[in-house]
Design a protein around this nucleic acid. Structure first.
Lengths: 159, 159
DNA sequence: TATTGTTATACTCTATAACTATA
DNA sequence: TATAGTTATAGAGTATAACAATA
């Protein structure tokens, strides 16, 4: 069975038989899966009127179980402080989070999930989990574990 | 050995012990690897003053070995016609591609690599291949094949 | 002086749709 | 009428840096 990457690899073999393009078989496929999954994930978030980053902010707060500062959030989610401020403000306006002024340091604040924010996240999270199960349908339990372990190996090496 | 996704999974287990978040172990890791690799790939392209899409356009023309129409290019690379026109014009201005008017259909044209364009692509491609070898360092031959095959299984199921 | 968080600015990239020329 | 390709417009998202308040 041939996929789109096999087709590309064949074209390269014809056009540049001198090159070893085997790495593309891995990197190219991972990029394509990521792109397809990204769209599918965003479609699920769309139904809750959340962007991927808005979901990530709410989810980070939810699983931490404690309020976090904007600085902690932008460092965790690898965004600039300015981009995080804008995102936070939009979520505040929609009533999903609140800023709580710090008592020790009057420059700082903590960002906390509101009750509607938690409900919004929990609903989106459930759909997200269901969605991921569909995305993984092609693989059985053992293959999922294999894939996770190979990716973990790459991650631990990259860091 | 624990990676960042293990940490997130542990947080979810504490905050929402009722949920099965195991799919995140696969999908989350794939997203992270993709994001890390994407940056590393773009860094290599940057050194040749090419964006990822500009590289893709030149590479598509190179491995096809024949001129392609803008329509074929935007369908292959999944961009809008407008976005493709803009990209093509920039590459024409830099002398990497040329538009050849069609003789049969005067609305249409073919996009062809110039000699400098081919040299630019070949240089960027060599660096890209070297770069991918580094990205895959963590995995041996057999593991790379396993990873490619698992991803291919996902791809064939998604299509 | 340094740091926290916000705001203003400018930039990149895109899709959409209007548009021209041709089929 | 439909199609190929271009152009104009507007929108989303970002990083950067200027900024105000506080440490």
């Amino acid at each position: 069975m041939q996929d789109s990457v096999d087709h590309i690899l064949r074209q390269w073999r014809d056009a540049r038989p001198d090159l070893d393009c085997s790495a593309m078989g891995v990197v190219g496929r991972l990029g394509r899966v990521s792109s397809i999954w990204r769209k599918q994930i965003d479609t699920a978030f769309d139904q809750h009127e959340l962007s991927g980053i808005e979901f990530d902010i709410l989810a980070t707060l939810r699983r931490s179980q404690v309020p976090l500062t904007p600085t902690e959030l932008y460092q965790t989610l690898m965004l600039s402080s300015g981009a995080m401020s804008t995102r936070i403000e939009k979520l505040v306006q929609r009533g999903f989070i609140e800023r709580i002024a710090s008592e020790d340091d009057r420059r700082s604040c903590k960002v906390m999930l509101t009750e509607p924010g938690q409900q919004k996240l929990d609903a989106a999270l459930q759909d997200h989990l269901d969605n991921m199960e569909v995305m993984l349908e092609a693989l059985n339990k053992d293959e999922r574990l294999q894939l996770a372990n190979l990716l973990k190996k790459v991650l631990l090496h990259s860091r």
